[in-house]
């Protein structure tokens, strides 16, 4: 059984905009899946339909085998969602937000409180449990939304741009926590603009453009579509680069070059060729993220 099965999903908004055009998508149980796309591509609409915040126009959606047209209330129990926009009630205390959310899933207070304690402690919010989200930083609000999404112990978590506006340290802590939950069996579907994270965290990904899925594969395979890689090469002093012409070198400054390498070429050969020029290599690293480039290439097609 798949965690998510989507067939011919279509959504046309009241203003006539067709946000989704008969998309098909499957997500395996236990996957860490990325849904990529530019703003307005349809990512949030997919999550909205899966969480009953958007009415679909046509198509079939199953969550852990449960058809949302027939038994959405059962399907909803499998899902936790962290939305893109902060949607916390700013007049309530953090602990009450979690206990209330549990109540919506039919979980009484006495069961919800220990769960809330565990989540708030794990996400570093326990000390602030009686504070309202008004007094929280952006990162704390995001973590509280993650705790809220997990209070009913769902099997699948939707994260819609969860790290937008979160500082680097908190973002890494959040990813560490989510990786830990994924290893424990939680299926995660993620939309993000940080493609570096997708490259590091996700196993499978789909790219959505103009309401259509234009690519769906493992992140590893998607990366193989990239046949070129740009490297930033640091040397003690840049010298004559004519013998490096096959790598299309660009001199950035006195100590830095940028070169392009195809998948057929090896770094070993390049380093040997560089040594022949008399330049002393001090550092070499890929420029930018490969997935980001692929993403831009695909979107610009």
């Amino acid at each position: 059984m798949k965690a998510i099965e989507i067939k011919n999903l279509t959504k046309t908004y009241a203003n006539g905009i067709q946000a989704l055009k008969r998309i098909d998508l499957e997500v395996e149980q236990g996957d860490f899946f990325a849904l990529l796309g530019a703003n307005g591509a349809g990512k949030t609409t997919v999550i909205g339909i899966l969480t009953d915040l958007v009415n679909k126009t046509a198509g079939e959606v199953k969550v852990f085998g449960h058809d949302i047209d027939k038994d959405f209330s059962v399907a909803k129990k499998f899902i936790g969602v962290v939305p893109q926009e902060i949607n916390l009630n700013i007049f309530e205390r953090a602990i009450d937000i979690l206990v209330t959310q549990a109540g919506y899933y039919g979980i009484p207070c006495n069961e919800a409180l220990p769960r809330a304690e565990e989540l708030l402690k794990r996400l570093g919010l326990w000390e602030k449990r009686f504070g309202s989200p008004r007094t929280y930083s952006g990162g704390m609000k995001r973590r509280l939304m993650i705790a809220r999404a997990l209070i009913h112990e769902p099997k699948m978590l939707f994260l819609d741009e969860p790290t937008a506006g979160v500082d680097v340290e908190i973002r890494h802590e959040m990813w560490e926590y989510l990786r830990e939950r994924n290893k424990a069996g939680l299926t995660i579907l993620l939309t993000t603009h940080y493609l570096e994270e997708v490259e590091q965290m996700c196993r499978n990904a789909a790219i959505i453009k103009g309401g259509e899925i234009i690519m769906r594969d493992s992140v590893r395979k998607l990366l193989t579509f990239m046949d070129k890689e740009v490297y930033v090469v640091s040397v003690q002093h840049v010298k004559d680069i004519t013998t490096l012409s096959q790598y299309k070198p660009v001199v950035v400054d006195d100590t830095t070059l940028e070169i392009e390498m195809s998948r057929k070429e090896t770094l070993h050969d390049f380093v040997a060729r560089l040594a022949q020029t008399g330049m002393v290599l001090t550092d070499i690293r890929p420029k930018g993220h490969r997935l980001e480039k692929l993403f831009l290439e695909v979107l610009n097609k």
């Binding site: 915040l53 939305p83 949607n87 009630n89 937000i97 809220r148």
Partner: peptide
């Protein structure tokens, strides 16, 4: 209206609450 305005109404809408 307050929960609708803050969008915290989504808390209950995404849940199985009828």
């Amino acid at each position: 209206f307050s929960v609708k305005f803050q969008r915290s109404i989504e808390e209950v809408l995404v849940s199985p609450t009828t």
